[in-house]
Design a protein around this nucleic acid. Structure first.
Length: 636
DNA sequence: ATAGGGTTAG
């Protein structure tokens, strides 16, 4: 749109200008243009003519394309008598778009106070805002209000209400609204599909998918992402084939990037690669920046950090999101030095944001770069104008704690301008466990239980600390507390991709079709590992039976603990990989929890004994085992 | 007199 500015300058009629502004709102013109037009209106004095609705038009332009600060300013400049529902809604939507929905809700309250007539579009916007905030209170109390203003049967309003319930994880409430609707659109069905897939199960989602009277690419994407994110590769792939080759649907950038995120989540490299090829074929060198970044992220989270780097190096434009994705990928892989190095390149081209520093600090933490981490943390505000958020404090507590500076970590927590959350305290507890600081650990867990009473991990950490100190009574006691509360440890599950098929194992698995062979391999592996010095780490484990008589684990108990250690899901996945893949090829294993100490040392030795590169992604990061050592340098 | 604001995949 190069012509409008000149056109406007040559013909300053209000009519033309208003038309011009509307054109700008509609077309995806640059935010810059809004600024130029605004300046033009001020310098010509035209903005003073309130009756012409120029201000309103400009408000809509800024709300749609520009910054919310200016939109807000313009909104305030227009007298309330000249504002109608559309103006209020525009600003509310603008707040939602810019991640400050709480302002939107405040605006709605003000709008009601001003006595502006609320219509369906305004309500859709309010429910969207509630969905973003996870605030269901407003919606719950609004049914009477909807009836009163005659909007209780508006399909669009009902869709927004259902979406709010789904986003607030109240599927049954959403379904209740759905049942009561006289008329349902494709969006109504899609919202329920989304709810069923993300809150119910993929299977029940599929039932909705199959009975939908009409489905568009949104529904297909929801179903596809549901399959991939939950590890149902085969079902996901056949759906994709049906979508592309059966229905002839083209995958747009949203479908591509959300599919890639799902691949990253479940570690589905095969599907990720398919999407990469598809994107290259259909987009002819002009792959969308969002898709490219999602590709980068997918490769990094599937353990291919070097491929991720190649994608990154080939990016035509590198925005802050792309830089952050690359930094966090390297950080996850424990490449602390590479992160610091890349950051220095980044600041020459792009202004870093808060996420950049979360990656940077976590990289320092994972690599034990205490000095460097402290330098960036203490200069965040001074050099980069970023006020430290709780995430940054959490990284620093982790960094200091892991390095053994527990007192310093605790001082930092007490000095934080916000109360510590479970991430901060959890990482302090983790450090207590590494460094055997039992007294501090006991204090920290008391605070943690207040914050998150149902978390099992903290109890287990402390219980293992007691066990290490030989305090078996306390350790058992803690486990009994958990048992009595009916809290169970989340089961450890490891998966491994072999020949395009995902294989899942749980601890002590009995269900895998090749489980007999896997256990035979496990016996053989343990024997070979012992020969080169592997000693099962039984000290940190507590016998799970109810015996509280002896001070130390008896011989039989030790044996039982050993067996439990050996059948950890990651060891089973490893043995399956060793059995079914070519000698010397690398193995990629994904675990839903953190890898345990014993498995970590077993993997190191196995990487030498079997001459394999073993990459394990746990809940926090990657461990790349090669020739007897791990990329994390045992610092995790 | 008048357009403008909005719901489902990220």
């Amino acid at each position: 749109m190069r012509w409008p500015i000149n056109y406007a300058f040559s013909s300053l009629s209000i009519h033309r200008l208003r038309h011009l502004i509307r054109q700008c709102s509609r077309h995806h013109s640059s935010p810059d243009l809004a600024t130029k037009l605004h300046a033009l209106l001020i310098t010509t004095g035209l903005l003073a003519f309130r009756d012409t609705f120029l201000g309103n038009a400009l408000l809509h332009l800024y709300a749609a394309r520009g910054s919310f600060t200016y939109a807000h300013q313009l909104f305030d400049e227009i007298p309330n008598s000249h504002k109608d529902a559309a103006d209020w809604t525009a600003l509310m939507g603008c707040f939602a778009l810019h991640g400050i929905p709480q302002n939107g809700l405040r605006l709605f309250v003000e709008m009601r106070r001003e006595g502006v007539r609320v219509d369906d579009v305004a309500l859709v916007c309010v429910y969207k805002t509630c969905a973003l905030l996870g605030n269901v209170e407003f919606g719950k109390g609004s049914h009477g209000f909807l009836e009163k203003i005659g909007l209780s049967s508006s399909v669009k309003v009902c869709n927004a209400v259902m979406d709010m319930y789904v986003k607030c994880r109240l599927l049954s409430e959403a379904k209740r609204v759905f049942e009561n609707m006289d008329e349902r659109s494709v969006v109504s069905w899609t919202v329920i599909l989304d709810g069923e897939v993300s809150l119910g199960s993929v299977g029940s989602g599929r039932m909705v998918f199959d009975v939908m009277p009409e489905k568009n690419e949104v529904a297909w994407t929801i179903m596809l992402v549901g399959y991939i994110a939950n590890g149902f590769t085969r079902d996901g792939f056949s759906l994709l084939v049906e979508m592309v080759f059966g229905c002839g649907l083209e995958l747009n950038y949203v479908t591509l990037s959300s599919t890639l995120s799902a691949c990253a989540l479940s570690g589905d490299l095969m599907m990720g690669r398919w999407v990469h090829v598809y994107a290259l074929k259909t987009m002819e060198k002009k792959v969308d920046i969002m898709v490219e970044t999602a590709l980068l992220d997918m490769y990094a989270k599937c353990g291919r950090v070097d491929t991720a780097r190649k994608v990154f190096d080939n990016l035509s434009i590198k925005n802050v999101v792309a830089w952050n994705a690359m930094l966090s990928g390297l950080a996850m892989h424990g490449r602390g030095k590479a992160v610091l190095d890349l950051f220095l390149h980044m600041v020459k081209e792009t202004k870093p944001d808060d996420l950049t520093f979360t990656s940077l600090l976590s990289a320092c933490s994972h690599s034990g770069l205490v000095k460097e981490g402290q330098y960036y943390f203490y200069n965040l505000e001074l050099l980069y104008g970023i006020r430290p958020k709780i995430e940054h404090y959490a990284c620093m507590v982790d960094l200091l704690g892991r390095a053994g500076h527990l007192a310093e970590a605790e001082v930092l927590i007490r000095k934080m301008p916000m109360p510590p959350n479970e991430v901060v305290l959890g990482s302090l507890l983790g450090s207590c466990s590494i460094h055997g600081k039992l007294e501090l650990g006991e204090r920290v867990i008391k605070e943690l239980i207040q914050l998150d009473p149902h978390n099992t991990e903290y109890h287990i950490l402390l219980s293992n600390m007691y066990a290490l100190e030989g305090k078996r009574d306390q350790a058992n006691c803690l486990r009994h507390v958990l048992k009595n509360k009916g809290i169970r440890k989340a089961p450890g599950i490891s998966s491994i991709y072999v020949k395009g098929q995902v294989h899942q194992f749980c601890a002590g698995d009995k269900f895998h079709p090749l489980i007999t062979e896997v256990y035979a391999m496990l016996d053989e592996m343990i024997r070979r590992l012992r020969l080169v010095g592997y000693v099962p780490n039984t000290a940190s484990q507590v016998f799970h039976g109810c015996d509280t008589t002896g001070k130390n684990n008896t011989y039989d108990e030790v044996e039982e603990i050993e067996q439990a250690l050996f059948s950890h899901s990651e060891k089973l996945a490893l043995c399956f990989g060793l059995l079914t893949t070519r000698a010397g090829s690398p193995l990629y294993i994904f675990k839903n929890l953190r890898i345990c100490i014993d498995c970590h040392s077993a993997m190191k030795i196995a990487s030498t004994v079997y001459n394999r590169e073993i990459v394990v992604r746990d809940r926090n990061r990657f461990h790349c085992f090669k020739q007897g050592s791990c990329s994390c340098s045992d610092y995790w």
